[in-house]
Simulated scan of single mutants.
Amino acid sequence: MLDRQSLREMARRHRQSLSPHQQQQAATQLKARFIQHPKVQAADTLALYLAMDGELSTQACIQWCWEAGKRVCLPVLHPVHAGHLLFLAYEADTPMQHNRFGIPEPRLDSRTVVPLEQLSLIFTPLVAFDSQGNRLGMGGGFYDRTLAQWHQHRQGPYPIGLAHDCQRVEQIPSEAWDVPLPEILTPGHHWIW
């Protein structure tokens, strides 16, 4: 079995090797799965993310949410509690900035912070996943900390991972702090555990 860093590098190479056409096709297929998901249809406030580094694009899903009257939130690095995320309301005209990792996020404004308990769903990016729902992120643990309450007590927003089909690996060596996901959507599958 490959170690976590080797798996991370391999999966990132796989998703970065997808052509623009393959990326667009994957985003279109994801949107079809996304809008048919019963939890998405029932949700009023969802957290998504803006894709980078070859991640599966969420832009069509975000646009659909806006058109359906759903509130969309994006993660923002917490300015005080290192290693934690805040979620801010996101609209087409939201002022954006790049965080220290170069990821676009809404400019911090306390008026647009959405408390975690108001989120119905959190769609998480990931680098790799396995058939047990284990996810491998970029290594910062931001989503693991955010989802700890859900993992321990099934309280808080319901998490769903988003990934390209090529990001599935045989097995991810898990750590005590890892939060397995109950569902992962890919362009080709809907994985539920």
Rank of each mutant, 00 (worst) to 15 (best):
G139A: 03
Q152A: 13
T112M: 12
F123S: 00
P106G: 01
Y158W: 10
S120L: 04
R107Q: 15
G137Y: 04
L121E: 05
T146P: 04
L181N: 00
G137H: 06
V127F: 08
Q118S: 13
L147H: 03
V113K: 10
M138N: 12
L126D: 05
I160G: 01
Y158P: 00
I160L: 06
T124C: 14
V179A: 06
N134A: 12
H164T: 05
I122F: 09
W150Y: 15
Y143L: 02
Y143A: 00
P125M: 07
Q152V: 07
L185Y: 00
D165M: 06
L119H: 02
Q171T: 13
S120V: 04
H164K: 11
G139K: 03
L116E: 12
L136K: 06
L108A: 10
P106H: 04
F129N: 01
L136P: 04
I122V: 15
Q149A: 15
G133F: 07
T112P: 08
P157A: 15
G161N: 04
L136A: 06
P157D: 14
P125K: 05
R168S: 11
H151N: 09
P115F: 13
F129G: 02
R145N: 03
L185V: 07
I172D: 00
H151P: 00
D165F: 06
L162N: 02
P115G: 13
D165P: 02
V114H: 09
P106W: 02
Q118P: 08
L116A: 13
A163W: 02
Q167C: 12
P173D: 10
P115R: 12
L162I: 15
P173M: 11
R154G: 08
L108V: 12
H164V: 00
W177E: 10
R168D: 10
G141K: 08
G140R: 04
L119P: 01
L185S: 00
N134G: 08
G161D: 05
L126W: 01
H164I: 03
S120R: 12
P106E: 05
T146D: 01
Y143R: 01
R168F: 09
H151M: 07
E183W: 01
A128W: 03
P180F: 06
L116S: 14
R168T: 09
N134W: 10
L181W: 00
L126G: 13
F129M: 10
G161H: 02
L116Q: 14
V179Q: 06
D165E: 13
I122P: 04
G133P: 07
L108C: 11
I122R: 06
F123I: 11
A148Y: 03
Y143G: 01
P106T: 00
T146L: 09
A128D: 07
D144V: 02
I160D: 01
W150E: 06
D165H: 03
H151E: 08
H153Y: 14
A176W: 11
S120Y: 05
P180S: 14
L108H: 13
P157M: 07
S120N: 15
H151S: 13
F142S: 05
R154W: 08
P182T: 10
P173T: 10
G137F: 05
Q152I: 08
G140T: 03
E117A: 14
E175W: 08
G161Y: 01
G161M: 04
R154Q: 15
G133R: 00
P180N: 09
P125R: 05
P115D: 11
G140Y: 01
